[in-house]
Write a protein that binds this DNA or RNA. Structure first.
Length: 395
DNA sequence: TCTGGGGTCCTAGGACCC
DNA sequence: TCTGGGGTCCTAGGACCC
């Protein structure tokens, strides 16, 4: 029987590496992608040079700036990264049939059936790695295993830039620290530590059913993974953390309106509809709440979405006292086809389509919702477009 | 040192119906 | 009139990943 070999491949420090590729002057410098050092954000990707200073993704930008004063801080240019990501996946799909994307810079490849064309699994993996690196111009790390978990862990060993094959996966796994298992996060780890369990083999021996639940899926389903292509997204969200906490309700509404506006436009452009809306707030003390509501029908019209959003926001703002740190909106239950829209909601759809047409020709800020004008008090933007009178539309 | 933004999946509990 | 239990749908929130 041919063992089910799996290849895992991952672009090294993806966003930072793209920036260095596009600006060769940055080569060898500690590059930190995520935002400016004084901003309220976190590190998205740190180059290996920056990691030497103890900077890693998820770290607050201000902390990163303290640890690495010489760091080159950059805002992400995500449209560029996604173009390169597309090239990465196009290349993989050309090289092998069973590609499963995990994220923009990471994929699993089912190598079964490929062994007839190469001298060894290792050679096959090496070939794929070399071709990919040449194609996208970035360094990648790769790992081969008998399961997805084995392959992913092999990649970890291979970083940066290498290729690793865990031959005795069973022994390797059983000795492994649970902290290394994807899906076991800080919370679960703390509980397991409380039980005096730190390694996979201890878990298997003491709590076999828990082992089956946490580790099992990685082993069994992964040997025969479904070769799903990047599935259609099930939700879309937009959120904003304010530069400073705000107490002005009108400002909060304006921000939310802008986010809903963006989501509505996104849905219209992709011919999609939403059946459920979720609103999220985070107060100054970091406590976070969400409210969601099923619409009972599907829509992508701004004003339909806004009415529900505003209702949910008002409910959420009763939870605690202002100020607010973050506001966000999410659309779920995405469908490609719309069922029959209630009569009162038709106008909103038609209007939003009209707005989309204008924006397509003259840009996003050529036309905007009246209530969003409030944002200009704090974030002045050059807006010479048409203002939709909010009052007349929300009646 | 404060702690983003975009996702997925799971669970618990309430409402409702039979 | 009061009762139980199962099934289903829905929402809030948590855990996790990159």
């Amino acid at each position: 029987m041919i063992p089910p070999f799996v290849l895992h491949i991952d672009i090294d420090a993806f966003f930072a590496a793209v920036e260095v590729m596009l600006r060769p002057g940055l080569k060898g410098k500690p590059v930190i992608v995520g935002g400016m050092p004084e901003e309220r954000g976190v590190v998205c990707t740190a180059s290996y040079e920056a990691r030497k200073y103890g900077v890693h993704s998820g770290m607050a930008l201000r902390t990163a700036a303290q640890k690495c004063p010489s760091g080159v801080f950059l805002r992400g240019r995500y449209h560029i990264y996604s173009q390169i990501s597309k090239r990465f996946f196009d290349c993989l799909n050309r090289l092998a049939p069973g590609v499963e994307g995990v994220s923009v810079d990471e994929a699993y490849i089912d190598l079964r059936g490929m062994q007839y064309f190469y001298a060894s699994v290792y050679e096959m993996a090496e070939k794929i790695k070399i071709v990919v690196e040449k194609e996208i111009g970035l360094r990648v790390s790769a790992g081969v295993g008998f399961s997805k978990l084995g392959a992913k862990l092999a990649t970890e060993m291979a970083k940066p830039g290498g290729l690793f094959f865990i031959e005795d996966e069973k022994t390797f796994l059983s000795n492994l620290s649970l902290a290394k298992i994807p899906g076991i996060g800080p919370h679960t780890l703390l509980i397991l530590q409380g039980l005096g369990i730190g390694r996979v083999k201890e878990l298997k021996k003491t709590y076999p059913s828990l082992w089956k639940k946490l580790i099992g899926p990685h082993l069994y389903s992964s040997t025969r993974f479904p070769r799903k292509t990047h599935g259609e997204a099930k939700s879309f969200s937009r959120e904003t953390t304010f530069p400073e906490d705000i107490s002005d309700r009108e400002m909060i509404m304006s921000h939310l309106s802008y986010l809903v506006d963006r989501l509505s436009l996104y849905l219209i452009e992709h011919h999609l509809f939403t059946g459920r809306i979720e609103i999220k707030v985070r107060f100054g003390d970091f406590s976070t709440f969400t409210r969601r509501a099923a619409l009972g029908f599907s829509t992508h019209g701004y004003h339909n979405m806004w009415k529900v959003s505003l209702f949910l926001l008002n409910e959420l703002l009763k939870k605690k006292k202002l100020p607010l740190r973050l506001v966000g909106a999410k659309v779920e239950q995405i469908s490609k086809q719309r069922d029959i829209l209630p009569f009162v909601c038709l106008k909103s759809e038609r209007l939003s389509h009209g707005v989309r047409d204008i924006r397509e020709r003259f840009g996003f800020s050529s036309i905007f919702i009246g209530r969003e004008l409030v944002l200009e008090r704090v974030y002045p933007v050059e807006r010479e477009g048409i203002v939709l009178k909010t009052a007349s539309l929300t009646k």
